[in-house]
């Protein structure tokens, strides 16, 4: 089993590298073949990743979420899985040019540093903590996909508004499709983020850590991000608004989330310390 993990730890980045390269060729060039093969390549990469995660969990005797690098691996898997789902649902031209290279960059350390970390987080044996972590990873993955499509939307919006008909105009999917993809992924991410916050709250209550939450910058920022997303989805669902403001809220929400995940978690004292 260990040998299979070792083999997959080489094959997996190769699969993602191939899919990332193909996505770039499909976007920049005119190759129909590159477009045609992109989806099968992504499916193969996801299949290999799923196998790797299963084998790794069996070898390490734990859920592969116990270290920062393991979380990165799961995050890469989730991002690509959400991307694929959104792509299949939304149709049109592929937009993996940012997502697949990002997944490749995340997978590399995830497989390279799998032995270097210390023991897994002991809290992972608590189901609420596991749910909190898993929902957090899945939610962030979905919101990453939403963010990328939101950025594409804003770029194309600017291009068309300014009468610039260059490569972005020709290569990106239509604005309405980008809007739909941004929105679909945001709804999924928002739901998972809600589960993350609720499960984290229950976990904190069970460990007498509730009083620390109001002072926890990560908790506050994630709640702020969730509220921003709620605002964006609310104006769309309840107010019927459809324009770029909902995309702004989506992009803004992710920026706050990114600040929470990267800056606060690493540099500020918090319940959420990454090691």
């Amino acid at each position: 089993m260990q040998t299979a993990v070792d083999v997959l730890s080489v094959l997996l980045p190769a699969c993602y590298a191939l899919a990332a390269a193909d996505s770039i060729v499909a976007f920049v060039g005119r190759s129909e073949g590159a477009r045609h093969f992109l989806r099968p390549l992504v499916i193969v990469a996801l299949g290999a990743h799923l196998l790797y995660l299963g084998l790794w969990a069996a070898v390490a005797h734990r859920c592969p979420l116990g270290t920062v690098f393991e979380a990165m691996g799961i995050m890469a898997f989730s991002i690509v899985a959400v991307y694929l789902a959104v792509e299949i649902r939304g149709g049109s031209r592929p937009t993996g040019i940012l997502i697949l290279p990002l997944a490749f960059v995340m997978v590399l350390p995830a497989v390279a540093f799998r032995w270097r970390e210390g023991p897994a987080n002991p809290h992972l044996s608590d189901p609420w903590f596991s749910l909190h972590t898993l929902a957090g990873v899945l939610g962030t993955a979905a919101l990453t996909v939403s963010f990328v499509h939101g950025v594409f939307y804003l770029l194309l919006y600017r291009e068309i508004k300014a009468h610039r008909f260059g490569r972005l105009f020709r290569r990106l999917p239509p604005l309405a499709v980008l809007h739909r993809k941004t929105h679909t992924a945001a709804v999924v991410g928002w739901a998972f983020l809600a589960v993350t916050i609720a499960a984290g709250y229950v976990w904190a209550a069970r460990h007498d850590a509730l009083e620390t939450l109001p002072a926890d910058p990560m908790f506050l920022l994630v709640v702020a991000a969730w509220l921003l997303y709620s605002g964006g989805l609310g104006v769309r669902f309840l107010g019927g608004w459809r324009g770029r403001y909902t995309v702004f809220l989506s992009v803004g929400g992710f920026t706050v989330l990114l600040v929470a995940l990267v800056i606060v978690a690493f540099f500020f004292p918090s319940l959420h310390v990454h090691r």
Binding site: S92, L156, I160, F169, R170, P173, P174, L175, A176, V177
Partner: peptide
């Protein structure tokens, strides 16, 4: 053979780039 090469077809191309 890429893109529209008349004003009328360019109008349709633009509409497609926005709405699909």
């Amino acid at each position: 053979g890429e893109g529209a090469v008349s004003v009328a077809s360019a109008a349709v191309e633009l509409a497609r780039r926005i709405y699909g």
